[in-house]
Design a protein around this nucleic acid. Structure first.
Lengths: 190, 190
DNA sequence: ACAAAAGTGTTCCATATACACCCATGT
DNA sequence: ACATGGGTGTATATGGAACACTTTTGT
């Protein structure tokens, strides 16, 4: 999710939402605050990504960016009343030109997310509380960029006890999909 | 490797070497420079670890620390003429009380090193150019904190083609150990 | 001869991968 | 009835873990 920059430098280009840390604020709190202010979205998962500090990465002068990445469920609608300008979602495979070194930051974030996906439980943060196994599989396929065999995927899920079935179904005109919830503890971080 | 602090706060306590980034200096260059200045050691491997930014982690005021971890081969002797005060090595299992949140930083560094050890090749950065397989195994055992079976260890090494044998041996009064070199590309980073 | 570290194979188990068909529903 | 996405089992390959003895040297 990117925002279109209003001021210079890089006015009119897309950039990762962000801003300056307040004097008595921790880094993750600052990241979450800037995200809400600029986009209206609340981060469900927030993890420190990497710190970018090359002296010339910002034409205005020396700026060190402690980048965080946030995950937000699909159904988490844009809150009203944000002071955001244009906020837009892009697939990683089709990004617009980005301000500063933000393309590099996104690349690092995508790599990290792919790496974490199968040894941690971050994927659940991209889904609503109840979801079908196909939903979850689709999230994984989207992030990893390749198809997954549904039998293997489901086997892994229940060998790790990651999901709990509910007795709810989603009726979408075809065979109804059983809905599941995340079986672990609170999937958030930071 | 820790240094004893001279000034306040935490005067006399041990701390991770470090200091402030110069205005036109990149973060890894600053980390390497501070390490040399304060300890005389040159980092053979340097990797960004994590950024610590809690508002109250330094009693003097808001200080954000971008922590790096460095690996140094055993045989890399302390350079003469460093302006260091007391520099001392400690086993992770027996650390002295540390200044600031440095105990936490070391914990994170140790975890990261353990995690990287078997999917990357960082271990070689702790050894001289030629080493015996027992040396390498000992490095791994020390970092991981548990013994490793030598047959499994060697099998893994050559299934991954990580080492090249030389025709040198080390004669130490027992059966001589064949010496190996790292077979990968330059093991450094950053 | 013996002490000490170097070096060497096989078995077993767990996990990952490849692969194709039936099921339940709405229209 | 059929189209659509939901749901299921088996066989094979691969990597990790457990396990003990022989070899070579200096003393």
């Amino acid at each position: 999710m990117l925002i279109r920059r209003l001021g210079e430098p890089y006015a009119g280009q897309f950039a990762i939402p962000g801003g300056f840390v307040l004097h008595d604020e921790s880094l993750p709190v600052a990241a979450a605050r800037e995200l809400v202010e600029e986009t209206g979205y609340r981060a469900k998962y927030l993890e420190q990504l990497y710190t970018f500090g090359d002296p010339d990465r910002d034409p205005r002068g020396r700026v060190v960016t402690v980048a965080y990445f946030a995950l937000v469920p699909e159904d988490q609608a844009l809150a009203a009343g944000s002071d955001a300008g244009e906020v837009k979602w892009f697939p990683m495979s089709n990004l617009p030109p980005l301000a500063f070194d933000h393309a590099e930051i996104l690349r690092v974030a995508h790599d990290r997310l792919k790496a974490k996906l199968d040894y941690s439980e971050v994927g659940f943060n991209l889904l609503p509380a109840e979801f079908s196994l196909s939903d979850l599989q689709e999230v994984h396929e989207t992030i990893l960029g390749h198809p997954i065999d549904p039998r293997n995927f489901r086997r892994k899920l229940d060998s790790r006890g990651l999901v709990k079935e509910t007795d709810h179904y989603r009726y979408t005109g075809r065979k109804p999909a059983r809905l599941y919830t995340f079986a672990g503890v609170n999937p958030s971080a930071e």
